[in-house]
Design a protein around this nucleic acid. Structure first.
Lengths: 338, 338
DNA sequence: GCCGGCAACTGAACCGGGTAAGTGCGCGGA
DNA sequence: TCCGCGCACTTACCCGGTTCAGTTGCCGGC
């Protein structure tokens, strides 16, 4: 089936292409009767604007890009990302924007994708995740003038805009709670150390442990996978200075850690307390249900999407501090063994 | 920053636009030395092809579309969809295709999205999910000539191509297993009855129960949510003819059902056996771990993506029968109470 | 020495919309 | 009666890459 163009409409309506364009775009320059006739014909023959042609004339693509740097197969089991994406998608689809996802292998590939998207005018802006310390992606976005919003830590900086939450406050809440239960030796299974928010959490963890005069803060770095979380948990529970509580940087690792505790015949929470960061439905379904630092991740993604659309629209947008994760005590935390 | 165009390259190389186009696309018509010079200049000034301009001349968009008809916020907690998407994305990104997701409210909206994508030449093809009986989307794709691959039941039909698995065989395997354990009264918590694969499962369930001379097959229809699964389970476990085994059409409902069984003080598997369909990591983490009909969903998505790329490329593609889900017995199934 | 044929280009049209500049016409005012 | 003005259009060119029909220049063969 041939796609109808404005030239077809023009022929049927007996006017010129230009007049049709004015009519379809609500521009002045055509009479009301002509406009109605043109719109009726467009509707009747099922005309849709050709995005490519519009884009050539500088129109926005109504698409937002997200390059994800992780193995695609991991995506499906990472609730955080999927909830984030669903929140982004909810906000975008409400404004008739589409989301283009591209999984990339490494940072150079991700930067190449941004350059390509920009060169191809394929997206109007991008959401940048997993911000690193001195992230090379930021100067690239600035150089290209590609609108971008950072999801996660960047701080109060105006350019680029970011949506972030107070990681330090959440760490403090969790550690103070465990400390109040009587724990003196708390370990942490942390995420990738080169990520900014991991660094922020580690710094806050170190500081609060010092302030409360607990055992020196131990953080084991992982890649966020369940396997790595299980490995870290095994190491912690086998060590001579075995912690009585473990704080995990995501829910997948916490659940894997719970399975390891069972496997090693430690009772949760009697022998060891566990706290998850991010509170997907998983945390409530395991036994015992996991105490978690909970936040509304889809909302987080939605806010990021909205900020990005504002930046794209040229509206004044500033960095937005999202809700701080708050502790939801469940069955996986209790006083330490005497 | 201004985006460089082939006109810029042409000026710098001292040749015409046409020559540059030939050089960049590996077409004959330019000498090797000129080609090298053009490529070097393109590289140096950071040229990227403008996708819009290419698309205008009929080039493919290297994008595949997927319209998802469900509330965006649900997406994040539905392991099946997320695993499917991750598998699709893995296959696409390996071939430098991007995936455009769009959440839609209902079927007319979904069809409108297809028409728009087609009119805008925004995607080269689409993946169609949740096929219904007499699905109106299929004739629309045919009418538009928009390449599409159906994910899920369509059968052996050549047009459009589908990727499917043998739902009936999986039902039979599960029921025969339960029957061998001694169960005579098996109920099923099924998905949306208007979906094709649900219909196939229901038919197979009815038939195998009759063949094995079990109690008449009871299927309760749900919308796949955990809430609906819990409700259905409560109803089944409260009924006078309480089943000794329940087969769920997805994992989320099975897990919700497990929680209901606990809440009603039934022991699993001593009092009632549970079987999940689709085996996300969830099933292994709950207690007892759930017996499940397992299949490799990311692979399923990957196959669908590959079929779609073949159809787009005009290669001869035919419907593909994917792996049949196979039963993985775990702790949630045992002989019925005496 | 002339012609055919080919490689290596050039120039222009084209894709489908957007838009600045130009045109024709009717109408009101001086 | 003629001018000026503004509406309702048309014309023409732009965006950036593709493609086809020419055009040039070089080489070989007779």
């Amino acid at each position: 089936m041939k796609r109808p163009t404005i030239a077809d409409i023009a022929r049927l309506a007996g006017v010129s292409k230009g007049a049709v364009s004015y009519a379809l775009n609500g521009q002045p320059g055509v009479s009301e009767s002509t406009r109605r006739r043109v719109l009726a014909i467009a509707e009747e023959i099922g005309w849709n604007p050709n995005g490519a042609a519009r884009a050539l004339s500088g129109a926005p693509s109504h698409t937002v890009g997200m390059a994800l740097r992780r193995p695609a197969r991991i995506l499906g089991v990472e609730p955080f990302f999927m909830e984030l994406i669903s929140g982004v998608e909810a906000e975008l689809s409400a404004r008739s924007y589409a989301l283009t996802l591209q999984v990339v292998a490494d940072q150079p590939a991700e930067i190449a994708v941004y350059r390509r998207w920009w060169g191809e005018r394929r997206v109007d802006g991008v959401l940048v995740c997993d911000l690193r310390v001195d992230d090379p992606r930021i100067p690239v976005l600035t150089e290209l003038g590609l609108p971008g919003v950072v999801v996660g830590m960047l701080g109060e900086s105006a350019q680029p805009v970011s949506v972030w939450s107070d990681e330090a406050a959440a760490v403090v809440e969790a550690v103070e709670y465990l400390s109040a239960l009587g724990h003196r030796n708390i370990a942490r299974v942390g995420g990738l150390p080169e990520l900014r928010h991991t660094a922020a959490r580690t710094a806050a963890f170190d500081e609060v442990c010092r302030r409360l005069e607990l055992a020196p803060a131990v953080t084991i770095s992982t890649d966020y996978t369940g396997e790595d979380g299980a490995r870290a948990t095994r190491r912690l529970l086998s060590s001579p200075r075995r912690p009585t509580a473990i704080l995990y940087d995501n829910d997948v690792m916490a659940i894997a850690g719970l399975a390891v505790a069972h496997e090693m015949n430690f009772s949760v929470p009697a022998d060891v307390s566990l706290v998850a960061w991010d509170d997907s439905v998983l945390c409530q379904l395991v036994h015992p249900p996991l105490t978690a630092l909970s936040r509304d991740i889809p909302a987080y993604g939605g806010h990021a999407a909205r900020q990005l659309l504002d930046v794209i629209a040229g509206l004044p947008a500033s960095s937005l501090q999202d809700e701080t994760a708050h502790l939801i005590p469940r069955g996986s935390t209790a006083a330490p063994p005497r």
